[in-house]
């Protein structure tokens, strides 16, 4: 990084440090009720304890496993349907009214219903994550597929490409920035939804642990587990953007 680039980061870092220091002081001096807002240094200690004791491993693996399973199912279904809807007018006409009907449903409102049908275990959580991840990807897949320049497809056809080659070598790469943008939105939504599903079911995972700590008024541990989820969300976002840049290095982001 250039010197100027590094210097540009100083005010931002100072601001974050200043906010943390102010909260630390307010909590230590009793300006903030430390039973509600513990000092950040104490939270950092709680977080370090959760990580180093290994307590983080099992819930985090469970949460991430369910998250990725549901996310993969939701994205795959949405990409397949979206590419079909974007490519064929008839498929679009067939499914458009149904998707317009289902899309505005606030997905977490379906949790109580899914709990009745699928119980409190993995199936229910994977289902709600897949549902929540589905629609943003679908919308982008339809729009992205449609945005592919017809000239490119015609050119491919002229050179004797079959349907599979046109799809794999022209449509998918050309529309990839749209698909990935939808998937990035869905990833954030999926994390929100898996956490709330775990909170409502008390059946393991970081969300359940977090709400347990809150119910037991273990304030420090609650903040510690929140930090676990914050780090998870931040890392997933960074990881996705890295993958996105590698896959669509030629594209100025959509």
């Amino acid at each position: 990084m250039t010197r100027a680039g590094l210097m540009g980061r100083v005010p931002g870092a100072l601001f974050v440090v200043a906010v943390l220091a102010a909260v630390e002081a307010a909590s230590r001096t009793g300006f903030f009720n430390s039973a509600a807002v513990p000092p950040p240094s104490v939270v950092a200690g709680a977080f370090a304890g959760i990580v180093t004791s290994g307590a983080v491993v099992k819930p985090l693996l469970q949460t991430l496993g369910l998250l990725f399973a549901g996310y993969a199912i939701g994205c795959t279904c949405a990409l397949v349907l979206g590419i079909l809807m974007g490519s064929f007018r008839r498929v679009y006409d067939l499914f458009e009214p149904l998707t317009e009907l289902l899309r505005p449903i606030p997905k977490p409102a379906l949790l109580p219903a899914l709990m009745l049908f699928l119980g409190l275990g993995a199936t229910m959580k994977v289902t709600i994550v897949a549902l929540a991840a589905f629609f943003p990807v679908l919308i982008n897949a339809v729009q992205g597929t449609r945005s592919v320049d017809p000239t490119m497809i015609d050119t491919g056809r002229t050179f004797g490409y079959g349907t599979a080659a046109i799809l794999g070598r022209i449509v998918l790469p050309a529309a990839a920035p749209y698909y990935l943008a939808g998937m990035r939105v869905s990833l954030a939504i999926a994390l929100v939804v898996i956490v709330v599903a775990e909170m409502l079911t008390a059946n393991g995972g970081v969300g359940a642990t977090l709400i347990d700590m809150q119910h037991e008024f273990q304030v420090r541990a609650t903040y510690g587990w929140l930090t676990v989820l914050a780090v998870t969300g931040f890392s997933l976002n960074v990881l996705f953007r890295w993958i996105e840049r590698r896959l669509t290095f030629w594209s100025p982001s959509v």
Partner: peptide
């Protein structure tokens, strides 16, 4: 330069995770 890094830091935190702490 001052505020943007803080926003980028907090934005990916899932909102549901903050609720238990906000209850306190």
């Amino acid at each position: 330069l001052t505020l943007e890094p803080a926003i980028e830091l907090v934005r990916p935190v899932p909102i549901t995770a903050i609720i238990p702490v906000l209850i306190f």
